[in-house]
Design a binder for these strands. Sequence first.
DNA 1: CGTTAGCACTCTCAACCGTTGAGTGCTAAC
DNA 2: GTTAGCACTCAACGGTTGAGAGTGCTAACG
Lengths: 357, 357
Amino acid sequence: MGLDERKRQILQAIIEGYINTAEPIGSRTIAKNSELNLSAATIRNEMGDLEEMGLLIQPHTSAGRVPSQLGYRLYVDSLMQKYKMTAAEITRLRSAMMLKIEELDKTVRKLSAVFSGITNMPTVATLPTVERGRINSIKTVMIDPRTLMVIIAAGSNILKNKLLRLSSAVDADFVEKLNVILSENLVGLTKSEISLDNIMQVQSAVGGNFEILTAVLELVHEAISELDNSEVILEGVTNILRFPEYNDIERVKELLGFFENRENLGKLIKANAHGGVSVIIGEESNIPELKENSLVLSSYELGDGMQGFIGIIGPVRMDYSRAVSSLEYYTKQVEKTLRGKFYENALRESEVDNDGK
Amino acid sequence: MGLDERKRQILQAIIEGYINTAEPIGSRTIAKNSELNLSAATIRNEMGDLEEMGLLIQPHTSAGRVPSQLGYRLYVDSLMQKYKMTAAEITRLRSAMMLKIEELDKTVRKLSAVFSGITNMPTVATLPTVERGRINSIKTVMIDPRTLMVIIAAGSNILKNKLLRLSSAVDADFVEKLNVILSENLVGLTKSEISLDNIMQVQSAVGGNFEILTAVLELVHEAISELDNSEVILEGVTNILRFPEYNDIERVKELLGFFENRENLGKLIKANAHGGVSVIIGEESNIPELKENSLVLSSYELGDGMQGFIGIIGPVRMDYSRAVSSLEYYTKQVEKTLRGKFYENALRESEVDNDGK
DNA sequence: CGTTAGCACTCTCAACCGTTGAGTGCTAAC
DNA sequence: GTTAGCACTCAACGGTTGAGAGTGCTAACG
């Protein structure tokens, strides 16, 4: 009993119908609304076969059919047609992305919020790791004699700043000296290349005032580590309430509980991401709390090995076609934005770049 | 029919019982669990009186009594006893407040998250307005030849930074010159004192390169305005799911919908805040979406007229005693934190200051 | 005269039906 | 191979019923 063209068409119709209505689909519905001119009885026979093959499930005898996880998998892998974003959607997304330049974490947060607003789905994102990204610039600025700000730029547009309150005052000369030495010793290095050696070098170069120096270096280290720890950003969680599957408060609590611990999400992303867009359906994640939820995940690359992730989370019955297409398109836009091209355009308030696709 | 001591005691018992159990309280429950040695029948008579006075409501004939909004009001104003925070709570709060120094918005966000975590309630907060706060320092830093960061410090510890991508490169000399001029012309002023005059002065002082200068000044203006626009921060919203009154998804959606528009919240806060802690019960807010929710609000003062707000949102049946006390204590801590005392202690990793109370 | 025991009354809630309707699987005819 | 017809199943809906909680009222008590 193979999966001939007709079976595939029927399966697709059922899955898409179910995605749209959230109601089990019966044979009559398919008979009426599809191009195949078949009677309900014939469809029923085929549906029986599809169920035997494990692609459909019958919630109970007198209900229609619902896709199984296997069914969704097949749909995503080979049935699903690419959703074509409408001009309106593209416009909306592009104009929403005309952001001011900001530090990385704020930018990624806003980008996630924008995407969540457009897809009406909860969105996860991680900051790009800078494992192999080089420190472009490192600066210390005196806010007042007892407060310093350390600003680190890595890769392109990856910025991080930290504040430091000192227990004793410093002067401008000291800060300038510090800046020169920090630049000389740390700029051009990747995170992993910063070793105890460099640090000792800086210490001996500055000489004296160990207390402040130690604090500054600690902060630098912290900032660099944070650049790398790929903090997980979650936006638009309450969008899940739009889905009828979350009319049960317990399910909402379960999912929200899982979200509470961001590390879980981080692990999930790391475990499941590979190049391009991945779709993780229900139990495929091997996480009990997510067994009725799916994740569509995409990585964005900023060159130099810097990589982050963006994803959409929703019920297993989500519009995968739309999710995958939006995410693909969006990922490209994010790459451009974070690589800096975008900012300049935004600054000039001209049209967002048009060369894509 | 006045409100004698006995009636007050009964009312208090009913309200506190209801706050704890979320179930209407019957006469027998009060008769058993309170110190007044009265029979259920007597309590019933009193309850009848209290209902007539508009302080209690009977959901239906065979249910117990539930406080009316008026009842809660009376409770908050004159019945409620101050909740004494336990040593454990204080310790937890204090240790959670050992934050690193950061920009203001991040700090306030974290402080809100901490408080929300401790109270298990959604928390709102606004950044302090700097209407009358003076600009302490203003600096432009060159990240790379085409990227500038503008850092503004106002009041004590009120920091804001902005990034600017330039369409043409600048050099260190230009930046230095810019810094001197910005400092000379803007430091020491309050926001309202910055006029077109100052700006023109700066422009003519720098001379030439209008394009960059305009962009920088725009950014400065933006940063200062943002310092003043009292952005509303909302943390721990999903805590409302702990309350049985939000077992109805529709209510959750309604409240979340209201939260979506932060301006609403901002207006609400402005309209209802006065010195100290205010309690806004249900319909008192005059906002339809909040008619079944209450808000406990407190202002924190940073001196120089700088003022922000922190508040707790929850169902009308919330533990006002606890909310008010926690908020009072917390507000004091926040004031210390934002005034900077706290940071130094945190930096030294010594015990958080002990002189409070 | 305030307090209390007793009792009839009211109303919600949960459990327990039939009934209805959607959808199926099977059979027999085309 | 396809389809019409039909008996069957099962969730969902609505009405009924009984239990339980709590009340208000009345009459008795100290």
